[in-house]
């Protein structure tokens, strides 16, 4: 069953078999009187993105925002395969966004107002990053008193090996077969260090639980159901920490993958002007601390990256296409399954 699902996913992503993309949620922020519609397809949850949309709408009266929420691979499916009409696509999957731009599905926006943005925060004037979100380790307060959490992956491996009974069935991570974000983080980890595969091996032996989304992992850790969760989206965790207690966020000291949330204008956009305004609005997010506060989306901040060299933003470029290669992907997933699904 699970294999069949993976196969379908691969097929639909890369060979373009007919399959309708799945919509997780659909919200319309109607403006009265209405002078235009901006159709947004996004992977960001409604409660995360709603404040941004409302603030944008306040600056652009009369613009109705049609907000469609889909998974990263459904977004890819919608635009790359089905040519669904959207004016702007916002995704946390940098590799898929890169592929959209590389394959010619994105429109160029030459005059983007990215004055304060670093050069690495955009690609081909088609993909524009507006957040930097680290993948972090969540540890439950029930298992770790403050200051005892592991600081590197090596320490984590030692900890898990030293006390298998304590952690068996109590650790979680992304099911990279189902989550584009999880897959991106895992592949970047595998590229950055050899420790990754040992960690997967150890986690597999401890019968790690697999999750589709960061939200579930955050809840499980705060409940004490999990002792720790690896590669959770840090921005979501930080937002949740204010509401539900019971866990700490650990940014590793060896390296932290930093994902950039990006926006692009699909080639078949029908309201590119409004989409460009939204891109300018998003890339200026670092000038709106109020929105960063309520959405929990950390704006691009080059200074932060300079001060903490362990933070490694994933770079745009054709190399992001490597792990989207169908053979490479199936190889990677096979290795991953061999490591993680031992029982």
């Amino acid at each position: 069953m699970r294999f069949a699902f993976v196969a379908t996913l691969i097929l639909t992503m890369l060979s373009g078999a007919a399959r309708s993309f799945e919509v997780e949620d659909h919200v319309i922020y109607r403006a009265t009187p209405e002078s235009g519609v901006l159709r947004v397809i996004s992977t960001a949850d409604r409660d995360v993105f709603e404040p941004i949309i409302l603030a944008f709408q306040a600056e652009n009266p009369g613009l109705t925002v049609d907000y469609t929420i889909a998974g990263t691979s459904d977004l890819m499916q919608a635009i790359h395969v089905e040519n669904a009409v959207f004016d702007i696509a916002i995704s946390s999957a940098m590799d898929l966004q890169t592929r959209l731009a590389n394959d010619g599905f994105a429109r160029t926006y030459e005059d983007a107002d990215t004055g304060a943005m670093p050069a690495w925060a955009s690609w081909r004037n088609q993909i524009f990053a507006f957040t930097q979100e680290p993948a972090v380790l969540l540890v439950s307060d029930a298992y770790f008193s403050p200051g005892t959490a592991p600081r590197t992956r090596e320490e984590l491996i030692e900890l898990l090996r030293a006390d298998p009974e304590r952690f068996a069935g109590r650790i979680g991570t992304y099911d990279v077969r189902r989550s584009g974000f999880g897959y991106l983080m895992a592949t970047q980890d595998s590229r950055n260090s050899d420790v990754f595969w040992r960690l997967m091996e150890v986690m597999g032996r401890l019968d790690a639980k697999l999750y589709c989304c960061s939200g579930e992992m955050i809840r499980a850790v705060s409940d004490g159901e999990l002792a720790l969760a690896y590669n959770v989206l840090g921005s979501y965790a930080a937002l949740q920490q204010d509401k539900i207690k019971g866990f700490q966020i650990v940014e590793f000291e060896d390296h932290v993958n930093v994902m950039l949330r990006t926006a692009l204008i699909p080639a078949n956009s029908q309201n590119a002007g409004a989409a460009q305004r939204l891109i300018d609005f998003l890339t200026a997010l670092n000038q709106r601390p109020d929105l960063v506060e309520v959405s929990g989306l950390p704006a691009v901040n080059p200074t932060l990256l300079q001060n903490n060299t362990a933070l490694r933003p994933i770079r745009f470029g054709p190399e992001l296409l490597v792990f989207l290669d169908q053979l490479r992907r199936s190889n990677f997933l096979r290795n991953w399954e061999n490591s993680l699904l031992q029982n």
Binding site: A101, N102, R124, R315, F316, E319, L321, L327
Partner: peptide
């Protein structure tokens, strides 16, 4: 025939002008 697409094969095509690669 099988292939493990090497990361370097595409990363070496990274250019300042952000060329598209197929």
């Amino acid at each position: 025939v099988t292939l493990e697409l090497p990361y370097s094969a595409l990363s070496m095509l990274q250019t300042v002008h952000q060329d598209r690669v197929f």
